[in-house]
Amino acid sequence: MKILVCVKQVYDSPETLVFDESTGQVTFGPHTVFRMNRYDEYALEEALRIRERLGGAVIDAISVGPARAAKTIRRAMELGADHGIHVQTGDIDSPGAFERAHLIAAAARGRGYDLVLAGVMAEDDMESQVGPLLAAVLEYGCATGVIFEEISGNGREIAVEREVEGGSRECLTLALPCVLTIQSGINTPRYPALSHVLRARSSELECIAASSLAVPPPAQSLVRILPPAQGRKGEIIEGTAVEKADKLIHILREHSLLPRQGA
């Protein structure tokens, strides 16, 4: 069994982003730290568990991104992936889901993956697209939001449960090969083992220039970045901490939401 796990490098905290209103660009500030997308951590962990259950499975981790993305691929190897593939985008910091999916598909095609796993979404763009786009490009089956999986039928199919609204689960069986996007909470991601860390340090990443892969032109373009919409005009309660507490208590009492204590 050959498994491909798609891992994306994202910033650790959106608080370090810098918005330049004159150019409409969001850039990473000097204190931006990058790490693996949390949803992809669950996808990788699920791949590791499949390998433990089945034995003999090989796990490749792939990421599309600039030079710094190599660190996230190494992290995947420290956690237990056998092989790392870096599709290098050079100056393009964060290609869109469409380009990302086509680049992964171009790199993956012909390698005979039985199963492709990705997180249900990326924390930064929140598009939830790469997994299902990739499936369609590769002509693989696909299930999104997977919270349970079990390979069955002598490794020819996989039973999955998808989490849907209100926590119900849609149960289905897909033929392999297929793409699953993994919902958080399906497992508890492990910490790296020292042996894997040492191995990851000494192994080479396979690097592919994105420009060497044939992909279609982008399907959409960014017009501009906007500040958030002004939603409900909520009131920010100001003052010292004590004043804030007292004001809030007053508001809640006015609305009969907070009874007098001991009454």
Partner: peptide, 13 residues
């Protein structure tokens, strides 16, 4: 995007 801190205006090509 970015946890609701920004919005992107996008056009289809």
């Amino acid at each position: 995007l970015h946890h609701g801190r920004f919005r992107a205006e996008v056009r289809a090509d």
